[in-house]
Design a protein around this nucleic acid. Structure first.
Length: 372
RNA sequence: GGAGGGGUUGGGGAGCGGUCAAACCCAGCAGACUGUAAAUCUGCCGCCUCGUGCUUCGAAGGUUCGAAUCCUUCCCCCUCCA
């Protein structure tokens, strides 16, 4: 499934084969929680060269429900996207919907936010759902350990995730899709190593680092990632879940991570927070009201090639749907383009200088337009 | 001409003797957002020398310890009847 094409330091340039085609790594997966990347169509996704997207097992289970997706011929057909799809298991919802769920050894009980119905998710159900959706990459059910967590709590939580990982593996049977295990262990390196060892013994088609970017300091995010990524199997994909800012991603690629997903480009786009070659542009701010400039003079995306900042500002202020669409196109283009540039840098062995250059804009406290 | 109802801080609109610089919504200004309960949320939004400070609720008088709130006159607006 994974083919390594070249390396530059720890960084890896590769590609991953799925039954819905190949995608290049390092890869960024736009998030389409409910089977749609918010505000843009699959056609647009293809036009900005998205090669794989992420969707969500739990949210799709709640709405529209697995039966409707099955009746539509699977998730690809349902949403008319014929490239690879990865689904998160719902493990993150254990964390983000903390007030609405109960965790036991057996699984997770959710109280639906929609109608109060009791929903139940355990590794077996979770695997069954993801296989019924027909996704290319399924994730093991895990508990995303919150931050901060005492070492004893993080350890117990990690071990639960590992038992669930074994059950996920046992329940997952498929010839044309893959299952990834998820490393937990909070900000504790020894727990992370232990978690990885357990998962390696179980054997998955890929391995993910979970439970990061949940509020921990940047040093922990980078520290844990750079520590654990190089220890992950070299012949399989490495996926850092839920990360992150452009700088987070660049750093993690340097550490040898292959796959990313994050709501930042899409959610921030809808909130008028846009990534450009010069830093952040908050298009909602009044300073852009009269600007005839392009959003990013160095960007080739549809939004930047056709519209002025004052138009984007206007769309955002009037809450026109087109504003969300154009801004999402731009932010995703920025992310996908960044991944392209990273891949090219690894291929040519110039990642170090690429990162240095990147940090001039994105890791410079004296630049007001950044997001460290 | 007759009968009623109104005029409140940018707009809409509460308040109807003290707890009112005055709810709430919109607009405006800024901030947040990392495996999406998020096209969402938070803060600010009369003035200043920032305080038991000042000036506000159509205008001017009055009652009262105290008025956006009660009374009088005036000026506008709206509805209905002629």
């Amino acid at each position: 499934m994974y083919t390594l094409k070249s390396k530059d330091g720890e960084a890896r340039r590769g590609e991953i084969q799925t039954s819905h085609g190949i995608f290049q790594t390092p890869a960024f997966m736009p998030v389409g929680t409910y089977g749609a990347v918010k505000s843009i169509s699959p056609e647009i996704l293809e036009s900005i060269h998205a090669e794989i997207i992420l969707s969500n097992t739990y949210h799709l289970m709640e709405r529209p429900g697995v039966e409707i997706i099955k009746a539509n011929g699977g998730l690809h057909n349902f949403m008319s996207w014929d490239k690879p799809i990865l689904t998160d298991s719902g493990g993150y919802q254990v964390f983000s919907l903390a007030k609405k769920r109960k965790i036991t050894e057996e699984g997770i009980e959710f109280n639906s936010a929609l109608n109060g119905n009791k929903l139940f998710l355990n590794p077996e159900v979770c695997m069954e759902l993801q296989q019924a959706y027909g996704v290319d990459i399924a994730m093991a059910l895990d508990e995303c350990t919150p931050y901060p967590a005492e070492i004893s709590v993080a350890k117990e939580s990690m071990h639960l995730s590992m038992r669930w990982a074994q059950r996920s593996r046992d329940a997952f049977q498929s010839d044309n899709s893959s299952l990834f295990g998820i490393i937990q262990g909070g900000v504790y390196k020894d727990l992370r190593e232990e978690s990885l060892d357990i998962l390696k013994k179980i054997e998955f088609e890929g391995y993910a680092i979970g439970g990061l970017s949940v509020g921990e300091p940047k040093d922990d995010l980078q520290g844990i990632t750079s520590h654990i990524a190089p220890l992950m199997p070299a012949n399989k994909p490495r996926y850092l879940m839920g990360v992150g800012t452009p700088l987070d991603i660049v750093k993690a690629v340097e550490s040898g991570v292959d796959m990313f997903d994050c709501v930042i480009p899409t959610r921030h786009a809808r909130n008028g927070y846009l990534y450009t070659s010069e830093g952040i542009v908050k298009i909602r701010n009044s300073i852009h009201k009269n600007s005839l400039e392009k959003l990013d003079p160095n960007c080739d995306c549809y939004t930047c090639s056709k519209f002025s900042r004052s138009y984007l500002h206007h769309l955002d202020k009037t809450k026109e749907m087109l504003g969300s669409t154009l801004q999402t196109i731009h932010n995703l283009y920025f992310y996908l383009n960044l991944m392209r540039n990273l891949r090219a840098a690894i291929e040519t062995g110039t990642l170090q200088s690429f990162v240095k250059e990147f940090e001039i804009t994105w890791n410079n406290p004296s630049n007001p337009n950044i997001d460290i």
